[in-house]
Design a protein around this nucleic acid. Sequence first.
DNA 1: TCGATTAAGTTGTTCCGTCAAGTGAGTGCC
DNA 2: GGCACTCACTTGACGGAACAACTTAATCGA
Lengths: 165, 165
Amino acid sequence: METPWLDEDELATWVRLIAVVELLPGVLDAQLRRDSGLTHFEYFVLAMLSEAPDRTLRMTALGRRTNATLPRLSHVVRRLEERELVERFPCPEDGRATNARLTTAGWDALAGAAPGHVATVREHVVDALTPAQLDQLRGIAESLLVRLDPDGRLTDLYDPPADRP
Amino acid sequence: METPWLDEDELATWVRLIAVVELLPGVLDAQLRRDSGLTHFEYFVLAMLSEAPDRTLRMTALGRRTNATLPRLSHVVRRLEERELVERFPCPEDGRATNARLTTAGWDALAGAAPGHVATVREHVVDALTPAQLDQLRGIAESLLVRLDPDGRLTDLYDPPADRP
DNA sequence: TCGATTAAGTTGTTCCGTCAAGTGAGTGCC
DNA sequence: GGCACTCACTTGACGGAACAACTTAATCGA
């Protein structure tokens, strides 16, 4: 029942990973907020909508893709709606459900924010690693997600988005 | 001046990394809060103090080790002080500075929280990777920290803690 | 078909982090 | 030695996120 402590190498790796995990969101958020007035999470919400058919998703589906709880998503979408970047309307097929759709202004905001965001990602991550490391990182992240996201909520993003209710 | 977009592999890696970075803090926080009533950041603050000589650090030094802004740290330490897990007292050598010291209760809280926390780290990260991946991850994290933390604030943690004022 | 259960969102409270401003101690310069 | 300037925090206000409670719609069973 006792858990073995981390040895020296494990601890060193862990501490470095923690540092990355703590610092990276701040870097992304700071750049996006400064240049585009968007949170990284808001950016991600807009991006997910932009890739959906008719730029529309049900709140639940959007929550799955963004790994957000429904309350959190509800607040964020309300604020985005106040800024007229998305619009909400009741789902025709299910009276309980709400659809969120990206507006033209929302698409423009996303398009305006994307280049700077991609540049930040390149500068701080992609271009900071060798191609071999980038490949290793993909495998590592996949292994971690098996434990962190056993239901594969976020995994739908890259594999076929089979959204079968 | 134009930034090249991410190609397919880069994007796949990036999306997975984002997922890890979004999910991992939540997992750590949830376990610690549930089992020990501590935030991961609070745990980290206590841990840094526990390793310092006389279990005491100046606020600025503690902020460096935990990657916290001074206002954030000030609030957190105040709350920890109200729970009597740490105590603050003015620094004798510098009238402007404040020292934070881990109390006995704070040490006990840390000792009580550590096993469960380590088990979570093992379950979700260390044991989820092969030894080779763990080694790769260390190198990757080091490369990323060069960009994310150019001043090496957090880097002091693993290399000699030469804390020369 | 009608009552109970589940599902989908919304709303409200509380907590935490960030930003801007303030306080008081040290430092440098004339 | 006094005045400006910097440093090391602290404090207060604001915004976002988690949690719990509520509302309304669909479904399931008898």
